[in-house]
Each structure stands twice: as structure tokens, then as C-alpha cells.
Simulated assay, not measured.
Amino acid sequence: MNIDVTPLGLGCAPLGNLYQAISDETATETVEAAWADGIRYFDTAPHYGLGLSERRLGAALAGHPRDEYVLSTKVGRILEPNPAGASELDDQAFEVPAAYKRRWDFSRDGVLRSLEDSLERLGLDRIDIAYVHDPDDHFEEAVLGALPALVELRRQGVLKAIGVGMNQTPMLAEFIRKCDVDVIMVAGRYTLLDQPALDELLPLCQERGVSVIAAGVFNGGILATATPGTKYDYSDAPAELITKASRIAEVCEQHGVELPDAAMALPAAHPAVASVVVGAHNAEQIRANVARSRVEVPAALWADLIAEGLLRPDAVVEAAAS
């Protein structure tokens, strides 16, 4: 990827009122706290709060030099006015009025319209990285429509890098084989609880020189606190996963490390991973995540997790070990 991202990035779904509403002021303070702690990679999408995340992020970054940060957004969902829904709430986990509706569109024209709309909401003149967003049920459309359009925009210099962002690994690997992508964003599939990205995806990325952005490293909440939470991939966590996370937390505690510290350190240690992206609802969460990203995790912790069958033996952890 011909673009540098900071090892820690800010995922901006919370700026779109993911799970809970925050004020414009809190959104701005969150971005400013990230900036103050050296974060220069910001990821958003039209999907996040029906455009609210993009609007808030663009406003918060307006006072910062454009060449000093990297911004990514996504294509695949067109936002269309929905006046009838203005008095209702969005039904996809964002606390915003349903004044727009999402329409899947992975065509060339859909990509161009999506990026134009994103630039307007962001108030910017360019986007650095564009991801095809969640094309699980639209593989052929993405291969034949969205990605060729993004390749053309990259060739023209409109975009610096292009990729795909998903919550699964087999299709991401297939996109790498079939398309000329620079980067992939894999959410929730290389974490302390779940490492299927090791099977094929991460080795393929290393072989092809494709950069990896690791998102969803807390698996939707269960790994976000020292005592495991109850949400896994945005749904109620099965009892066996809570039990496993609790045991991982106990091993972490034995080594003076908290569960979220290790959850951030594991993906960051893999040589294919360029950045770990985490979200935050406020400045305090940003500062906590930055502090966690700087915790040195002892090699003995990884060894104990592997010995107890809590972590795959092929997990790459050397870079995180002290």
C-alpha cells in the first residue's frame, strides 16, 4: 500500500451514534483526543449513522492539515432520502432518525455516486482509501462493478489505495486473488477469541503484499473490558464464549495485563497488519485505548494461552512480546 497509516486508527462508527447517541461536541472532542495522542488514520462509512459519522468526522478534521492524516470511507450502500422515516429511529443499531434509507449498489455508477456523496458530507476534496463495504451477498457485482471503478479512480490519482472490508475471511481471500487491491479491513476475525484469518487470509496478504487493517478486535464488546462483556459480534455472546473470555482474562491478570490490552496487542503483532482500528464514544475511551495500545505484553502470556488451548499455536505474537 503506497500510503502510511498510524499503528492505531480511530474507527468512527460511534460518531454515527452506534448503540448510543452522543453530541456533536462529544464527537469533536473524541476526534481531537485521537489527534492529540498521535492517531492520524480515521475510518468511516456512509452506513455509520446514515451519514452522521462522515459529517461529524469531516467537521472535526476541518481545522487540521489535510496532508497530515489518512481518511478512509466505504462504498456499497447508497443513502436515499426517506422523509416518511424522519420520525422513526434507524433499525441498524444507530440512534439516528431514519431520514435516509440504505440501498445496496456495487455498480460503477453506484461507487461514483457514493464517493461524491461522501465527499460532500465530509466537506473534503479527497478520500485516501476506499473500501468495498460488506459485499457478502454481492461478490460478482463487486468484482465486475465496484472494484474496477475503484481501480480506475486509483489509476487517475483520485484515490491512493483501494480495498474491501468484511466480517469474514474466505471472501476477502477471494477478492485478493481476483482483484488488484492494496488493503483489506478484516473485522472480528483475528482476535483473542477468533483467529480464522490465520488459515488463509493473513498468509495470502503477506504473499501478495496486501496490507491489513484489523478492526473489531474486541469482538463487539466481549473483549473491551477487563471483565468480559456479554456482546459478541454485536449479538448476545454464547455462554461458552463468555467462559473462554473469562479464562483468557484470568491468564492475562496473572501476567499483569488486562484483557483489552492483550486484545489490541495480538493483531498489532502480526507483520501483515498495518493498523488496528478501534472505536470510541468519547475522549476518555480514546485515551484509554491509546494507553492500552502501549502496554507491553510478556511472551509468557501468549505461551500460557497457547498451552491452555485458548490461543492458536500459529498465532503470530513475537512483535508484541516484551
Rank of each mutant, 00 (worst) to 15 (best):
C179N: 10
A13D: 13
V186S: 05
R292L: 13
E88D: 13
A215L: 03
R121T: 04
E240S: 14
W104E: 14
M171W: 09
D67Y: 08
G279V: 10
A300W: 08
P260K: 07
I127D: 02
A299L: 15
E174F: 06
L115D: 02
S246H: 13
A21R: 12
V251K: 01
V75L: 06
G221H: 09
F94W: 04
L259T: 10
A307K: 15
G38R: 09
A269C: 09
L192C: 04
L172M: 05
A62L: 11
Q254S: 15
A84K: 11
I242D: 01
D134V: 10
F106I: 03
R154T: 06
P313L: 02
L57V: 07
A262F: 05
R287S: 09
L124H: 06
T30K: 02
T6N: 11
G216E: 03
L119I: 05
V257L: 07
I127C: 04
D43V: 04
D37G: 12
V158Q: 13
R66P: 00
H133Y: 12
I306A: 10
N82E: 09
R155H: 12
V276S: 00
R208C: 11
R66M: 00
I129S: 01
A245F: 01
T73R: 03
D67E: 13
L172V: 08
W104N: 13
E140L: 14
Y190S: 09
A226N: 03
